[in-house]
Simulated assay, not measured.
Amino acid sequence: MTYILIEIIRRYLRKTARKEDVFKHIKWQLFKRPENLSKVERQSLEQALISSDELRQMEDLPAILTLAKIVWKSQ
């Protein structure tokens, strides 16, 4: 589910900010673990995060979804 949400937001950013190259070629960087990113990948992803509030908020998404699952299972 997390991957679907990430992909939806990424596509939205690509469509709404066509002139900004910062959102090009970041798809797989969004899915990679931070420790597995190369220096160049990390820099381009950081540029995208600086340029987009939506992407910055998305960083917390996996933790939020995990917490939601825990709460849901406990009810």
Rank of each mutant, 00 (worst) to 15 (best):
T2F: 09
T2K: 08
T2L: 13
T2V: 07
T2A: 09
I4N: 11
I4Y: 08
I4A: 07
I6F: 01
I6R: 02
I6H: 01
E7H: 09
E7Q: 11
E7I: 09
E7N: 10
I9M: 14
I9S: 06
R10V: 03
R10F: 00
Y12T: 07
Y12L: 12
L13F: 01
L13H: 05
L13K: 03
L13Y: 07
K15A: 04
T16L: 01
T16M: 14
T16A: 06
A17P: 01
R18S: 05
R18I: 02
K19M: 03
K19H: 15
K19L: 08
E20K: 14
V22T: 15
F23Y: 11
F23W: 06
F23E: 00
F23N: 01
F23L: 03
K24N: 11
H25S: 14
I26S: 02
I26F: 03
I26Q: 00
I26E: 01
I26N: 00
K27V: 09
K27F: 05
K27L: 01
K27M: 09
W28C: 04
W28F: 12
W28K: 10
L30R: 02
L30H: 12
L30S: 04
F31D: 08
F31I: 14
F31C: 06
F31Q: 06
F31N: 15
K32E: 10
K32C: 01
K32M: 13
R33K: 10
R33E: 07
R33V: 02
P34N: 11
P34W: 11
P34G: 04
P34S: 09
E35H: 10
N36F: 14
N36V: 05
L37I: 03
L37S: 03
L37D: 06
L37Q: 04
S38I: 07
S38A: 05
K39Q: 14
K39N: 14
V40F: 07
V40I: 05
E41Q: 12
R42Y: 06
R42D: 07
Q43D: 14
Q43W: 02
Q43I: 08
Q43N: 08
S44C: 10
L45F: 06
L45D: 04
E46L: 13
E46P: 00
E46C: 04
A48P: 01
A48L: 00
A48H: 00
A48E: 03
L49P: 00
S51H: 07
D53T: 15
D53W: 13
E54F: 10
E54Q: 13
E54L: 14
L55M: 08
R56W: 06
Q57R: 12
Q57V: 05
Q57M: 12
M58T: 04
M58K: 03
D60K: 15
L61C: 02
L61N: 00
L61G: 00
P62K: 09
P62G: 03
P62L: 04
P62C: 01
I64T: 13
L65S: 09
L65T: 11
T66H: 11
T66Q: 11
L67Y: 02
A68S: 02
K69I: 05
K69Q: 04
K69L: 02
V71P: 02
W72G: 03
K73W: 09
K73Y: 11
S74Q: 14
S74A: 13
S74D: 11
Q75L: 10
Q75K: 12
Q75P: 04
Q75V: 13
Q75F: 13
